[in-house]
């Protein structure tokens, strides 16, 4: 028995070490945030972990202590009280400790839930850049309404500028996640969700579709590249100069289930994002989502005015995105 416990302890401490060591590596993306939202979320993870450990660690120690001390073949005589079954004092203590801890955690949660509400714009002097995200089977389409360009499975944006993601889906629900910048949000058809993120330093961040949406959802990875404003502008110009245009037919081709390489488009069809959102009717998405139906209404209007200019150069070229199988 005790040999086993010791073995267990050894295994556990080995893993604790692994976790600690891994924590130092930048591969543990959630613990290495590079943006405001991700950092707040990490703070919250740490706060809640510490609050939990306050109660967990004593419980674990107590478990090992009690099991050790009251084992029947213990050499020392221990107290044995077979009828002892109740103590108001003790039970009050262990009802109240978790209540207090949960109360603190609840207060922290309420504060952070409002602070980190994904549809809330970030407070920042720079004007946010808008990226419209559509999850397709099984690739991501990103449209830049202000720049009038589009990409597949790749986004680039300037660092230290808030990014306003507007998200929808033209396929089963997925989830848009760039762990180092902040938590994910679902992409759902018929709705325009919002997610505000910011990258505080340049870098290539891993992004992915986190929600299962069919056969090749695992291939829905993308790189989110944060660069300086100048580099970003140069990139936009380069896309405009050298990439084909995205046409409505081109979009329909792209929406056919299959995987895709990284692609770029020099222009986007007028109002494509809103068309995708409205394709499924602006319906109420059940309990609690009413708030967001309102949002999607807003988005629809803004979006329409914002990127009207991007379509002048829409041409019939849709050969550029043949990569999908």
């Amino acid at each position: 028995m005790m040999k086993g416990l010791r073995r267990l302890t050894a295994v556990l401490s080995l893993f604790a070490m692994t976790i600690l060591m891994a924590g130092c590596s930048d591969k543990v993306v959630v613990l290495n945030p590079k943006g405001e939202i991700g950092k707040h979320q990490l703070d919250l993870i740490i706060i809640s972990t510490v609050l939990c450990l306050v109660i967990i660690v004593p419980v674990l120690i107590l478990t090992f202590y009690i099991v050790w001390k009251y084992r029947h073949n213990s050499k020392k005589a221990t107290k044995y009280e077979p009828e002892w079954e109740h103590s108001t004092k003790l039970e009050t203590i262990w009802w109240s400790i978790p209540i207090v801890i949960i109360a603190i955690l609840a207060a922290v949660t309420i504060k952070y839930t409002h602070m980190l509400e994904p549809s809330k714009p970030l407070e920042h002097e720079a004007k946010p850049i808008v990226i419209q995200v559509t999850s397709l089977d099984w690739k991501w389409l990103f449209q830049y309404p202000d720049q009038g360009i589009a990409t597949v499975n790749y986004i680039q944006f300037p660092d230290n500028v808030p990014v306003e993601f507007q998200l929808t889906s033209d396929a089963p629900m997925n989830s848009f996640w760039i762990p180092q910048l902040g938590g994910q949000i679902y992409t759902m058809s018929g709705m325009a969700m919002k997610l505000h993120l910011i990258a505080e330093e340049p870098g290539d961040y891993m992004g992915m579709g986190a929600n299962f949406s069919g056969r090749d959802f695992g291939k829905m990875e993308f790189t989110a590249k944060a660069t300086s404003q100048a580099e970003f502008d140069a990139w936009v110009q380069q896309v405009k100069d050298s990439s084909p245009a995205l046409t409505t037919e081109g979009y329909e081709q792209l929406a056919i289930p299959g995987v895709s390489e990284v692609e770029t488009f020099s222009s986007i069809p007028e109002g494509l994002f809103n068309k995708i959102v409205n394709k499924y009717g602006a319906h109420n998405h059940g309990s609690g989502s009413a708030e967001h139906t309102d949002n999607s209404g807003e988005t629809t209007n803004e979006g329409a005015t914002e990127h009207e200019h991007g379509n002048a150069e829409a041409t019939m070229n849709h050969e550029g995105h043949v990569g999908h199988e």
Binding site: L44, I45, S48, G182
Partner: peptide, 13 residues
Amino acid sequence: LLSVAPADFQFHN
């Protein structure tokens, strides 16, 4: 930890 909604945005899925 998962129940803490804003943190769950990082744990979910």
